[in-house]
Design a protein around this nucleic acid. Structure first.
Lengths: 203, 203
DNA sequence: GCGCATTTTGACCACTTGGTAAAACCTACG
DNA sequence: CGTAGGTTTTACCAAGTGGTCAAAATGCGC
């Protein structure tokens, strides 16, 4: 396997192609449903060539997840205690909905992983994610207690933002099966969710 | 393969055991992640013996899905046009939340299938499910138009009920990673969702 | 307990899959 | 050039997988 830090042009190009291909294949098929051959093919490499860059299928998966985790948590990090409560929460919902629209594969990758018990990222959920959520839940609880929004359970508020926004990425085929294939659900979803959170939270 | 209709005692016992085992294994691993051996083992049979009752892995999967579909759609079917709008919608949410709590494996089975593009049930989504949703969306739209609830997009209202309730089954490990493993989230979830829908929909 | 249909098993097969070894091939740089 | 380091390919396992088959074992009505 090539050295980690000093990347040649070719290494950079190929690892990028592999990670992009792996995202495509893992998100569409899950970890077990994906094969190294599929990923290699999608990346335009032979299987042994791919395994020259990553030691194993597990290693590719781990690399893809690691690269994504930051992006995935950023919208929640940006929730500002100093801001206007309702605008902050609705803004967070908007950012998550945009993420679902613009990065559906990333959303499905996490969905696949978590639905099957998160065997490879459970630790991260219990540490990094939990810490972040605990911190922001305190902020929301303070807004509740101060009467600036309706009193609500902050954890379940966050769960509801996650579930409703990610639904449009993860269950995309079902949404399109019901609305019709050519219909873009996001504008309507945005309006609906704005109404929902505004009416629920306005004190 | 044994005859379809005239089931002997042994056939009944074994097919039941297989379907139960298949639900367990498919919901935890997805279609491709599950192996016929796993299912046979879980059912207490040998692999060839299992394949004496079902022609193939696909056939087992199809049988499990078919058996579940009815149960899964019943809560929406029970939405009564003649009832009180808010009570009907909150009632539907309750039934879905109970389903998530009492039948998490069934929920995860569908989640696995749909996240990966629903290759085996797309047709059903586009026909049976769509027809049912269209019908109930009309009911909700009529309530909206009559001013009996806040004007909302009925389709996205239904999506939000699905996503928030199923979240507690499908993303169970994540919920527990954040709330702590021994915490039962359902009572709080119920209260939160009641507040949410009541405040959003009350005219 | 007999005879027949049902059920179960053990051995097996073809194919896929993750991964390896070593040789062949580039390619930057002196 | 030429050669050293990086890259790619060819050929190949060993394990796992879905599925088959004929023979053995079991149930069951009489």
């Amino acid at each position: 396997m090539p050295k980690a830090t000093p990347q040649t042009r070719i290494q950079k190009k190929n690892t990028d192609a592999i990670l992009e291909a792996a995202l495509e294949v893992f998100s569409a098929n899950g970890f077990r449903g994906a094969t190294v051959d599929m990923i290699a093919n999608e990346a335009g490499l032979s299987k042994p060539n791919l395994l020259y860059y990553f030691a194993s299928k597990e290693a590719i998966h781990a690399a893809v997840l690691e690269r994504l985790l930051g992006t995935w948590l950023d919208p929640l990090r940006a929730l500002e205690p100093a801001g206007d409560p309702l605008l902050e929460i609705v803004g967070y919902m908007h950012r998550k909905l945009d993420l679902a629209r613009d990065y559906p594969r990333e959303s499905r990758l996490f969905a696949n992983e978590i639905v099957q018990g998160a065997p490879r990222i459970l630790t991260i959920l219990q540490t990094d994610l939990k810490d972040l959520v605990d911190e922001k839940a305190k902020v929301i609880a303070a807004w509740s207690a101060a009467g600036r929004i309706t009193p609500v359970d902050p954890y379940h508020l966050i769960f509801s933002i996650w579930s409703m926004t990610q639904h449009y990425a993860d269950f995309d085929v079902q949404v399109h099966a019901i609305l019709g294939g050519d219909h873009d659900p996001y504008p309507d979803a945005r309006r609906y969710l704005e109404t929902l959170f505004t009416r629920m939270l306005r004190p």
